[in-house]
Amino acid sequence: MSSTSSGRPAGSRDRDSEGRARNARPRDGLGRPLPYGAEGVPRQPEGIVRTPPETLAEAQALLDSGRPFHAHEVFEDAWKSGPAAERTLWRGLAQLAVGLTHAARGNAAGGARLLRRGAGAVSEWTARSGVRDPHGLDTAGLVAWARNLADAVDGGAAGTVDPAERAPRLRGGA
């Protein structure tokens, strides 16, 4: 059997311990795959159950360090493991983080679309639940931040988006 330059058999797929397909290539700070053997940033472990305050603290630290892709993974864990009544909220927050990721990667159209979709999900959840600032989240500030950044990215005014500089404040103003 031939092998790839990485030493893996040609045609083989990376798999996790349970046999699910997983890309084991290292990733950069914005989650883009790097060549096998390259030095990447540590990946967020998946499937971690955190309390909402733990989720928000970890996601904020990742956003502040310019790693919105990794913050998206933290929000995704909350979306998948949290109460069904909050899934739309956590999914919306994950979309905001991945929208910032795409904007920082230079994908203006995808970034703007995901920022607006995430803002819509957070707004929808807030309207349906009647809870304005769950877990101390500044939902109005996050929605405004996302829509403003989406408009700036769409219109070209944002230029190159630095994810750390443009990171939202999850609590207390975006």
Rank of each mutant, 00 (worst) to 15 (best):
V98M: 05
G99C: 05
L100N: 01
T101E: 05
T101H: 04
T101K: 02
H102N: 10
H102R: 14
A103Q: 07
A103R: 00
A103V: 00
A103G: 02
A104D: 02
A104Q: 00
A104C: 05
R105H: 04
R105S: 02
R105K: 04
G106T: 00
G106L: 11
G106R: 06
N107A: 11
A108I: 03
A108Q: 03
A108G: 06
A108F: 04
G110I: 05
G110N: 02
G110R: 01
G111L: 03
A112I: 00
A112T: 01
R113S: 08
R113C: 00
R113L: 14
R113Y: 07
L114A: 07
L115K: 06
L115M: 06
R116Q: 10
R117M: 03
R117C: 00
G118K: 00
G118R: 03
A119N: 03
A119C: 05
G120P: 00
A121G: 07
S123G: 15
S123D: 15
S123V: 06
E124S: 15
E124Y: 11
E124C: 08
T126A: 15
T126P: 07
A127V: 10
A127G: 14
S129G: 09
G130Q: 13
G130N: 06
V131S: 11
V131E: 10
D133M: 04
D133I: 02
D133E: 14
D133V: 02
D133L: 00
D133Y: 00
P134F: 06
P134W: 04
H135I: 02
G136R: 10
L137S: 10
L137A: 08
A140C: 06
A140S: 15
G141S: 10
L142H: 12
L142C: 12
L142V: 13
A144N: 15
W145E: 08
W145P: 10
W145F: 11
W145M: 11
W145L: 14
A146D: 09
A146M: 06
R147A: 06
R147E: 15
N148H: 12
L149R: 07
L149P: 00
A150C: 14
A150S: 14
A150V: 06
A150Q: 09
A150D: 11
D151E: 15
D151Q: 14
A152W: 09
A152V: 08
V153A: 12
D154E: 15
D154F: 02
D154H: 06
G155N: 10
G155V: 01
G155S: 09
G155E: 03
A157L: 13
A157C: 09
A157F: 11
A157Y: 11
A158P: 09
A158V: 07
G159K: 09
T160Y: 09
V161Y: 02
V161C: 08
V161K: 13
V161G: 03
D162V: 11
D162L: 08
D162F: 11
P163I: 10
A164Y: 14
E165Q: 15
E165N: 11
E165C: 07
R166Y: 05
R166V: 06
R166I: 04
R166S: 12
A167D: 08
P168K: 13
P168V: 14
